[in-house]
Design a protein around this nucleic acid. Structure first.
Lengths: 265, 265
DNA sequence: CGTACGTTTGATCTTTCTCAATAATGGTGG
DNA sequence: CCACCATTATTGAGAAAGATCAAACGTACG
C-alpha cells in the first residue's frame, strides 16, 4: 500500500457529510503543510496560545483538556487519527484549552492564514468545517450529560462505547473490542471520577461479564448490554448508519442533502 | 424608541468577531422570517426533530437540554435574547438535543434552506457562523470542567458568574446583579446537582456574604470573591475585554501574550 | 535489576443524594 | 379582596456514591 497523502484524513473529514466540489478537493490536497512528530505527553496546543497553524492528527492519539484553579484536570475530548484538531483555533485567536498527545504522534501543520483564506474563497469548505464543529459540539453535549447525570458505572460504560464507535468509524476497532489508548487515570479525568473509582467500576463491568480485558486491551462480551448500561446511543455522533469502515468515495447514500450547489466553477 | 428589525440580533451576533461586508449585512437583514410567540415550557426544537428553520431568540430565555434513559434532565446551555438558537440544526439533519423556553418568548424563524444557500454564497457569513459555533463549544467545554471537576459551591458560583457576564454583554445585567431567569431546579439540572443541594449552596454563598437575593433577584456583594469561589475567568466566553455594552463595530483590539517560544522543530 | 509508572485493593471519610415534610409565593377564579 | 391551587423554596435526617489515603503489586523499559 502506497503512503497516503498526509492531508487525506483532513479531506476525508471534510467530506464526511457531503462531498466537496472537485476543485475544492484539489485545493485541500494542495495545501502547504509541514509534518511534525510529537512525543507522548507533549502539547500540541496550550490554553492561551495563539496558534499559527491548523493541525491534523495523522497518526496517534491525543486529548483536549483543561485544568481548574485547584489543579485538577478535566479531559474534554479524545482526538483520534484523522481528526482535524485545530479547527477550534482557526477562527478564534486564543485557544481556550490545551491539546496533549497520549502516544507518539505524527501531525501535519497547515498555516492558519492559508487555511482561513481557503475557507473565505470556498464556501463548501466552510460548510464542511461548520459540520465538523457542530458534531464536536454534539459530543461535548453528550459528555455534559454523561458527567452531570449518570452514575460512575454508566459513565465509564458510555465512554467505552463512544470510543468503540468512533474508532470503528475509522477502522481502528470493531464492536468486539479495541486497544484502549488511555490510562485509567485519563479515563477518570474524562468522566469526572477518580482513577481508583474507575478501576473499581471496570472490575464491576468485568465481573458482570460485559467486558474483559488484558492490560489495555478491551473485549466486549456483550456489546448490547454495555450500551444499555451506558445509556449509549450513537445518534449524537452524527455518523451515517453504516459508515463503519467505509472507504472514501464509497460512502452510502445519506439522507442529508445540501441545497443544490450554485453553478460555480 | 422605534421597533428594531427582528433579525438585528442575528446580524449583531454574526458580526461579533469580524464585520461583514455591507452586501452580506444587507442580505442577512433581508432574509425572510416569521415571528412566533412561545409560552413558557414549550419546545423550540426537540431531540430527533428535523428542523425546517433556523430560529433566532428575539426576546425571552430558553435552554438546551437532554434527558437520559433514566429520565434525569441535564441542561446544556442557556439561551439569552439575541442568540441564534438553531445554528446547530442548520447543517446537521436531526437535532441531537431539545430547546425549551423558560419564559414567554418571541422567536424569528428563518427557512433553513434559505439560510443554507446564503452561507454557500457568502463565505464571510459562513465564517461568522463558525465563530459562533466555536464559542458555543468553548462554553460547553467549560461546563464539562465545571460539572466534572468542581465541587457544588464552585459550580453554582461559576454558573452565576457566567450568566452575569453573558447577560451583561447584552446589556441585560450588571456586575451588581440581575434577575435570575431560572428556578433552583433548573440551576441544579445545569450543574449536575439536585435542587435541594443547590438551595443549600445558595444559602452558603449568601451566608458568606458573596451574594444576596430576594426571590430570583441576585445581587453580588463581592463580585471578585464570587469569581474566585467559582474559579471563574471570562476568557472562555471569547468576549472582547470590554465588549460590555459596546456598540457593533466598536470593538477594541484584544491583547494576549503568548507563552515562551513554542517547541518548534 | 531497579526505577517509574500504572493498576489493584482495603479502610475510612465527605459530599451530595434521597426522602419527606413544611413554608413561601404567584396566579386564578369567585 | 380572598380562598385555593400549583409551583418553588427551605429544612431536617439518614443513606449512599464516590473521594481520599495508603499500601502493595505488576509490568515495561533503560
Amino acid at each position: 500500500m502506497s503512503q497516503e497523502h498526509p492531508l487525506c484524513p483532513l479531506l476525508r473529514q471534510l467530506e464526511l457529510y457531503s462531498d466537496l466540489p472537485d476543485e475544492d478537493r484539489r485545493l485541500v490536497l494542495s495545501l502547504p503543510y509541514r509534518l511534525r512528530r510529537l512525543d507522548p505527553g507533549s502539547y500540541l496546543v496550550r490554553e492561551g496560545d495563539r496558534p499559527e497553524h491548523c493541525t491534523v492528527l495523522v497518526s496517534g492519539y491525543a486529548f483536549r483538556q483543561k485544568v481548574t484553579g485547584k489543579g485538577s484536570r478535566q479531559i474534554l475530548a479524545l482526538c483520534i487519527p484523522g481528526d482535524a484538531v485545530d479547527l477550534q483555533n482557526l477562527f478564534l485567536d486564543v485557544s481556550d484549552h490545551s491539546v496533549q498527545v497520549m502516544t507518539l504522534c505524527t501531525v501535519a501543520d497547515v498555516p492558519r492564514e492559508t487555511m482561513q483564506k481557503l475557507v473565505l474563497q470556498r464556501p463548501a469548505i466552510g460548510i464542511a468545517i461548520i459540520e465538523l464543529t457542530l458534531v464536536d459540539a454534539s459530543i461535548l453535549r453528550e459528555w455534559v450529560v454523561n458527567i452531570g447525570r449518570r452514575d460512575a458505572r454508566a459513565r465509564v460504560a458510555h465512554i467505552l462505547c463512544e470510543f468503540a464507535v468512533r474508532l470503528e468509524s475509522r477502522g481502528l476497532a470493531t464492536e468486539h473490542g479495541y486497544e484502549l489508548p488511555m490510562t485509567q487515570e485519563q479515563l477518570a479525568d474524562a468522566t469526572g471520577l477518580t482513577s481508583v473509582h474507575v478501576n473499581r467500576v471496570l472490575k464491576v463491568l468485568e465481573a458482570e461479564g460485559l467486558i474483559s480485558r488484558k492490560r489495555r486491551n478491551l473485549h466486549f462480551e456483550h456489546w448490547r448490554a454495555l450500551q444499555d448500561v451506558g445509556d449509549f446511543s450513537r445518534r449524537y455522533l452524527h455518523l451515517a448508519d453504516d459508515e463503519i469502515l467505509a472507504e472514501v468515495g464509497a460512502r452510502p447514500a445519506r439522507a442529508h442533502r445540501r441545497p443544490e450547489a450554485s453553478p460555480e466553477a
